[in-house]
Write a protein that binds this DNA or RNA. Structure first.
Lengths: 240, 240
DNA sequence: CAGTGGTCTAGACCACGTG
DNA sequence: ACGTGGTCTAGACCACTGC
């Protein structure tokens, strides 16, 4: 099969692209079922097996989830799911640690060098920076700075309140679906400001997490730096 | 289809199990091609599509790799591949850091509490503990203690030399194929001994990595603790 | 019960890497 | 040219879920 532009692309990848477009545009909303594999097959004039391959690709990309006997649903960043997928901090008994977000501050500024590189922005581009403290059982636990391209989230800076789980907001208000992230970790000594906020001694060892989050088609949409004081806690990474 | 014990299992999972058994037993050696999908289909009396599903499951489990036009090969832990899969430390330019292993020391001892939990060992079981220092450009970089069940690797303690890439040894000499690992990370302050070995100041922030490695069917086969001084370097984790 | 995803067949042809 | 994995069809039936 030859596509309109002359390049040879498997049919299932063409179908996948069409499905992604409908999800990106909001025609198929988060948490809602997409058409059945048979319906997709009929609409695009392919067999069920081919429609299934297209859906399987989206499952692998964390864009949809299959529920046997029910249907296939557009991924939804609920608070719970977002923690399960993107929060990697666990306690001594290997349970995921729940945090609350206590204080916030949001400003628009020119992107710095790290932000321009991680978010793939041109010089002079603006970012919205959100600074916040996350607490565990009421005590400061993580000091976090979240940066997003201002152009991608119009009006976000003017909001009076921001939810703890930002990806839900990105998705529901801006149609930006975070599907993947990379985190770069280092151990650093707490400087005075961080030590004061986290209520630890200056020089205490902190885990510094620098995250870059990616949306559909690999587009970087957020970077954040988190400083954590991990007393009786750890970060969990799964290899392959 | 009903299997001999009466449970209903998809045929492709039955085929997958048979393939795993041949790899585990060494009948199909690391780095060697397994039979083609058509040959597998013929042998087990299933269609190519079903044989393909069985192979796809093994690909997802990191047991085999497909090479288009060539065949499907049993995964091999070569030095290069092992670094690419299990080494997560990168330099400031985001290149993977190569390390050399400079000094080693191996002892057999009773498993401690952490080892018993991570390796799923009974009280009184013995482990082989390997202590070693890994260097970067000649300077100490990672201080590492590797623990494996002594019963699983007979004769390993008596070896005069050990390679830098242990998983290659586990696989080639003992038929133990590491397919997955979990790493638990914390930031700690260097104690005197670690500081001296790594040539940093006592109290310097170190990244502590506690790894558990799993073989086929989820069996834990190794745990290791690594202390890294990450000057101009970071640990990379990929989320989903 | 109807409708969904999950498994399975027996073919066919294509794209790729090697000889 | 050959054999491999990769794509694709047009069916079929099974297993699960909710009504």
């Amino acid at each position: 099969m030859t596509s309109p532009d002359g390049s040879r692309r498997p049919r299932y990848l063409h179908v996948r692209g069409q499905l992604v477009e409908r999800i990106r545009s909001g025609a198929w909303a988060p948490g809602q079922p997409i058409p059945s594999e048979f319906d997709i097959a009929r609409e695009f004039g392919v067999s069920q097996g081919t429609a299934r391959m297209a859906v399987t690709a989206l499952v692998a990309e964390n864009v949809v989830v299959r529920r046997q006997g029910l249907g296939t649903y557009v991924c939804e960043h609920t608070q719970e799911e977002e923690y399960a997928r993107f929060s990697s901090v666990f306690d001594g008994e290997r349970r995921r640690i729940a945090t609350d977000t206590q204080s916030r501050q949001a400003v628009v500024a020119g992107a710095n060098r790290t932000e321009r590189r991680d978010l793939n922005l041109a010089a002079g581009a603006k970012v919205l920076r959100i600074r916040r403290v996350r607490t565990r059982d009421g005590t400061p636990f993580i000091l976090e700075t979240v940066s997003v391209p201002a152009a991608l989230f119009p009006g976000l800076a003017q909001r009076e309140t921001l939810p703890a789980t930002l990806y839900e907001l990105y998705q529901k208000s801006y149609g930006v679906l975070v599907v993947r992230a990379e985190e770069r970790l280092t151990a650093i000594a707490a400087d005075r400001a961080a030590a004061k906020t986290l209520r630890v001694a200056a020089g205490a060892p902190l885990l510094r997490i620098e995250r870059t989050a990616f949306a559909l088609e690999g587009r970087p949409v957020e970077c954040r730096v988190s400083l954590c004081y991990l007393a009786d806690a750890h970060y969990l990474a799964r290899l392959k």
